[in-house]
Amino acid sequence: MFALTATAAATTAVHAAASSAPKMDPLHHFQVIKIIPISLFGIDLSISNSVLWMWIAMALAFFCFRFALRQPSIVPGRAQSLAEAGFQFIDDIVNETIGHDGKQFFPYIFTLFFTILFCNLTGLIPGSFTATSQIIVTGTFAMGVFIFSTLLGFYRHGAHFLHFFVPSGLPIALLPLMVPIEIISYLARPVSLSVRLFANMTAGHTLLAVLFFFTATLPWFGAWLPFGFTVIFTGVEIFIGLIQAYIFTILTCVYINDALHMH
């Protein structure tokens, strides 16, 4: 909610600044531009800047790990320690949230975390594109998690999984009230998951774009203030990118755990 408000504020700022000579449009950072148009059976599958930067982020994630592991040794160097810490971080989340039978989902959760993290962080490079600021990208991941955990629940428990929507120990009279509420709260999961990440990335990058615009356009004696803010907010954005990847990952684990153990 807060993030959306910030976005709205940024949009207002755009309107206010639109009349002045250099045109400022922070939202153009989110404009998806086709690079290689591809169409299959009438469905648009073009490679856009969004897709390209997602690939760059993913390739960066992969090659960072490969670089860290170029000479694996028992006594790790700095890069290898970092890679191991990242691995251990996800391993701990999976073990603590799902438990022992979470091992089988580890590769997916590991990849999910580092995909989101690297998309969030590469988005901070000036001139880049943040794939996770696209609602459809975060929505795809969130829907993937949602569909996967729902199917997993039915696969594990069969029709019994429907009891997930019927709170135990409740009077029958309250069921018509509670079941829709449970269903709504279940359906809200992927939406809140995707909107949270998208809104945070959009708000942060809009703010940075505005600050960057001021730094670039103001004369030198006026530019130091937005420049300082740019530096500070870049730091904050790195932190938010990390936190959001963490929240997305831990909620994924929570949902998988719900499907497995029906809490």
Binding site: M1, F2, A3, L4, I184, S185, L187, A188, V191, S192, V195, R196, A199, N200, I240, I243, Q244, I247
Partner: peptide
């Protein structure tokens, strides 16, 4: 971030409803 998270939870549930 927790506050952000919680706000999103409320809004999305209402939207779904």
């Amino acid at each position: 971030s927790l506050a952000l998270r919680l706000g999103v939870e409320l809004v999305t549930a209402v939207l779904i409803g």
